[in-house]
Amino acid sequence: MYTDKVMDHFSNPRNVGVLEDANAVGQVGNLKCGDIMKMYLKIEDGIIADVRFQTFGCGAAVATSSMATELIKGKSIEDALKLTNSAVVEALEGLPPQKIHCSVLAEEAVKSAIADYYRRQGIDPTPIVGCTGDCDACHAHNHEEE
């Protein structure tokens, strides 16, 4: 059901765990929906020097978190904010349609952590970051009625 790339990131997640000296932490999703991502960043001179994640969720949730950390590590805040869910999907060589929301969550987790970084400095993140994550984590859930 998943691409080899997704299974690779699921079975060997990159940057997994807690970053003790993080100066930016964001969490998105909720337990009811079944996915929660927590992103820890260490930002130095505007650069994402280190990153870790913890994820409660399915294979796609783990893989998208892992891939998102790879895509932002070493990048500037500006570049990290440009990370889109479709870039994560592309890097994973695709996701099943019902799992696309996981990639949205990964994008939002990064934004949520960066928003936290600004907030810690007394800066309102909204104009810079926009949606700061957890906008509508369950939005992709289709409650179909015939």
Binding site: C33, G34, D35, G57, C58, G59, A60, A61, Q98, K99, A140, H141, N142, H143, E144
Partner: peptide, 11 residues
């Protein structure tokens, strides 16, 4: 029987 293991995304 988790939501993520079904197509409907509901548990």
């Amino acid at each position: 029987g988790s939501a993520c293991s079904t197509a409907s995304l509901d548990p």
